[in-house]
Design a protein around this nucleic acid. Structure first.
Length: 376
DNA sequence: AATTCGGGGTC
DNA sequence: GACCCAGAATT
């Protein structure tokens, strides 16, 4: 199918897709995930936000830990952002954690601690977009609304043999319309829950990216992609986006009497709100500083790479010691240090903070003493 | 409409 | 490496 018009949903699809997915989910879908088997909007919301752009396997450990610490929306709303970020540390897309916290506070302050019950109302809350709102509304309240995540986009593109660019907004609008049209007017709440889960399960376990298992697919008979014999031709690959840029990143680990100086990163940008050492973008700044203070020894540790969505970071850790009595005192006089945004932390305390993954990895390496430094 | 947000997994 | 993953917010 080509062009900008929404794809026509055939009568066969309109009548057959939904019940096939529902029946298949009940028989062969996933049922044991920790966020299943509940209609508690808080639990469902937490799982949906964690699962945004994140695979189930990655989320599993985080979800249980988070729910133990914050068992309901009131506990989460009463927490500090630092506590939330600490539990989110390593999961990435930290704006999600900030929105999660803000959303909990909004639900408590403006909705009496109860989540809105419609997708439209849910979508007005921080961090809840159209797809997440639909997931919560369908799972918890049986609303007849469709999700449209990466799995569903892939399934739809194949079922419709739709050649349009998945990244194009017009394509997304058309697929929202199609997805909605696949839901019967008389779908029950229980069916909506099974259907929504079934769409996710189908994309995750059957209609996979590289090796779709059309032989066990409940909608294979309705699928134009399968009929073509080459279902992996869809979804069409987007034209290459912007290439990741390389960036040097020189974290300056300042140590004093066993304590580490860490400071909170700005509210915007990479690793927003997390704790990290001062990060220099240019080595010259540090070298000038060191030349002026020959008594301080700086150690250069092996550089390593860390990939983000839009950056190829090349991290060059630097280790610097300052006099032993300063750990209880003021901020070190070092490049990049912002005194009122930082503090000294013991190793164990530091590792309980919200840290960027490479910072956590490096601190752990250092604390465990499994490596020796390259003194210079 | 295009960019900006992490980190980990797969092939 | 390329691509993807239960996307959303911002500009």
């Amino acid at each position: 199918m080509t062009g900008d018009a929404p794809p026509t949903v055939s009568a066969a699809l309109r009548t057959g897709f939904f019940p096939s997915v529902v029946a298949w989910q009940r028989r062969s879908g996933r049922h044991g995930l920790p966020w299943q088997g509940t209609r508690d909007p808080y639990s469902v919301w937490l799982s949906e936000v964690m699962l945004q752009q994140t695979q189930v396997r990655t989320v599993l450990g985080y979800y249980e830990r988070f729910l133990r610490r914050f068992p309901d929306v009131h506990a989460l709303a009463a927490a500090t952002l630092d506590e939330v970020l600490a539990l989110w540390s390593g999961l990435g897309y930290y704006r999600r954690a900030r929105h999660l916290h803000a959303c909990a506070q909004t639900v408590v302050a403006q909705h009496g601690g109860r989540f809105p019950t419609s997708a439209a109302a849910l979508a007005t809350l921080p961090g809840i977009g159209a797809s997440t709102a639909a997931a919560i509304a369908a799972f918890c309240f049986g609303e007849r609304c469709s999700i449209l995540d990466g799995n569903v986009r892939r399934v739809l593109a194949r079922v419709l043999a739709d050649d349009r660019d998945p990244a194009h907004p017009a394509t997304q609008r058309a697929w929202w319309t199609t997805a909605q049209a696949l839901i019967p007017d008389d779908a029950t709440a229980a069916e909506m829950a099974a259907y929504t889960q079934g769409l996710m399960d189908l994309g995750a376990t059957v209609c996979t990216r590289t090796r779709p298992r059309c032989d066990v697919c409940p909608v294979a008979a309705l699928c134009a992609g399968q009929a073509s014999g080459a279902p992996t031709a869809w979804p069409r690959r987007s034209p290459r986006g912007a290439r990741r840029r390389e960036a040097w990143c020189l974290p300056l680990y300042v140590r004093s009497d066993g304590a580490w100086w860490l400071q909170r990163r700005p509210d915007r940008g990479i690793w927003a709100g997390l704790w990290a050492p001062p990060v220099l973008a240019q080595v010259e700044v540090l070298e000038d500083w060191l030349c002026a203070q020959p008594a301080l020894a700086a150690e250069w540790w092996p550089a390593f790479d860390h990939t983000l969505t839009h950056r190829d970071l090349r991290l060059q850790p630097l280790l610097c010691r300052v006099p032993t009595d300063s750990a209880a005192g003021p901020a070190p006089a070092a490049p990049g240090v912002v005194a009122d945004q930082g503090a000294w932390w013991s190793p164990s305390a530091a590792l309980s903070l919200g840290l960027p993954a490479p910072v956590r990895a490096w601190l752990q390496t250092l604390v465990s003493g499994s490596r020796t430094s390259n003194s210079r």
